[in-house]
């Protein structure tokens, strides 16, 4: 079973993504911020990481950078709720860091599942 790691500081969002992906048949782990996300990521291996870009403690981009240093070809789907400088300036940055898909919140369920599915299928 494909494994997904969700890193998002919003508990409800985390829970919603978790249920959504579990319903779709994935095994899901969650982390509340970048620091916790890295601890989990280093212990296990994941097919896809869904990463919130704007988070406290360790910003998404920084977490992404660390993940890449551990696993070069990590498959990341970056999501952002905007605000601050806006998703437009953060999501392209995530993309340039190698995020495979980027989504603005609120994320369309079908689009997200399609993206996860595509990445898992890649193997």
């Amino acid at each position: 079973m494909a494994r997904i790691l969700i890193i998002d500081d919003d508990e409800q969002v985390r829970r919603m993504f978790e249920l959504m992906l579990q319903d779709a048949g994935y095994e899901v782990d969650t982390a509340k911020d970048g620091v916790e996300g890295m601890q989990i990521f280093e212990k296990d291996s994941y097919d896809v990481v869904i990463l919130d870009i704007i988070m406290p403690e360790q910003e998404g981009i920084e977490t992404f950078r660390k993940m890449r240093s551990v696993q070069k070809n990590v498959k990341v789907i970056a999501v952002s709720g905007g605000g601050k400088a806006g998703p437009e300036s953060y999501l392209p940055m995530a993309k340039s860091f190698g995020a495979r898909f980027t989504f603005e919140k609120p994320v369309d369920r079908k689009e997200l599942l399609n993206a996860v599915h595509a990445l898992v299928e890649e193997g």
Binding site: G83, K105, P106
Partner: peptide, 9 residues
């Protein structure tokens, strides 16, 4: 930002 999270849920 917070609104979008809520709406996501």
């Amino acid at each position: 930002h917070d609104f979008n999270n809520i709406l996501s849920v």
